[in-house]
Design a protein around this nucleic acid. Sequence first.
DNA 1: ACAAAAGTGTTCTCGCTACACCCATGC
DNA 2: GCATGGGTGTAGCGAGAACACTTTTGT
Lengths: 223, 223
Amino acid sequence: MGVIGVAVDVAVLALDGERLSVLLVKLKRAPYEGRWGLPGGRIGARETVEEAAARELAGKTGLSEVWLEQLKTFSAPDRDPGERCVSVAFLALVPAEQARLSATSKYGGIAFFPADEPHELPFDHDEIVAAAVERLRELVTYSNVAWSLFPREFGLGDLQRGYEAILGHSLDPRNFRKRLVDQEIVVPTAEVRRGGAHRPARLYRFAKRRTVFEHLIVGRTRT
Amino acid sequence: MGVIGVAVDVAVLALDGERLSVLLVKLKRAPYEGRWGLPGGRIGARETVEEAAARELAGKTGLSEVWLEQLKTFSAPDRDPGERCVSVAFLALVPAEQARLSATSKYGGIAFFPADEPHELPFDHDEIVAAAVERLRELVTYSNVAWSLFPREFGLGDLQRGYEAILGHSLDPRNFRKRLVDQEIVVPTAEVRRGGAHRPARLYRFAKRRTVFEHLIVGRTRT
DNA sequence: ACAAAAGTGTTCTCGCTACACCCATGC
DNA sequence: GCATGGGTGTAGCGAGAACACTTTTGT
């Protein structure tokens, strides 16, 4: 029986501008060197897949302390044309600022691409990205994982636009605010942000880092 | 870098009597030969983990055509004291009758054990069983996977007791019936079952094998 | 004064919960 | 006739959805 490799692949999602984006790197190894794909690689002899995912992420992008969750294991025999290799896919979430930083830093060959469309990526990476987006959509409707996608303080308008980008549909601002504030998922700070030629936005923070609660969200609009 | 093995382990859940139970087999390979554990084994060179799970299940228990879902990949470096091996855990659901059949058939060393308590199983199998039970509890609240745990026709009383066994709490019979019937998750058949010294029970079937719908749940009672 | 984003309250509907009694049968 | 499980209806509450206008600022 042939030897089977074990790898991890990480779909890093972030709100880049106001789009939900996925981080891709220029692959360095055959047979797809030079093409864009998900960061990842073989697991080490003495680490879990979770540790491997965190290590690969830090090594290839400089990102650390990010939210990481196992998604699914992909194992089609021909998924890697070079050699038999199963891959444990992960979802990672990073705040926009941090994401932009790492994309422009010393780590070369890193960029964000729209997450909600396929890019003809090598291996089964398109499928992994799709699974990551789907999972995030689920998560965001009944938890406050969005914590991991935003800076410490933010305007509720920003937050709403982030949710809309993730979910792919628009939300009602009154219902959105009501729920988040009434249920104390976010709390107002003393600060406001005076930006453009507009009324300044009060800044908020997430209240608690509880990750799951009883069916929050989403004030879907009819259209 | 040492070679890493890839295996699957399957937690087969069934309603055995009126308890939620997990199928265990007598392990045949070192270092735990003779002890009870989950059915499973190495994946083949040309199969996916899903195929491997189905194959192992059929081979070790005779069960086929069962509901199978990937749960999570376990990868602690020391989870297998013999050699480095990651394991992709699966949840399988089988109807009670089929379960009892396979447990008494030519396949030796098979038995059901209560699923909601640990059994000091080898490897991380207790953890896998716990994850399987948790997952089933989630599934059952917003889908009709129970389809896979019941025979074609059943009394609503049976169904309710099954749900109670899975969830670990009691349900209100009026609300339970109302929802399942009003939302056409189950439909009455022409038959009734005349059993003991009681009013005969009308028999029902599941209506459609849609697996997920919008938040069904289950009429939790206060206690 | 006007453009642009922030902010706000009420009504309706629907699904979940709670709760107690009669029904059909075998013995 | 009685024991046993099968079967039923209603009222209240809470959460989500719908919906349009006022406020604050910079220019």
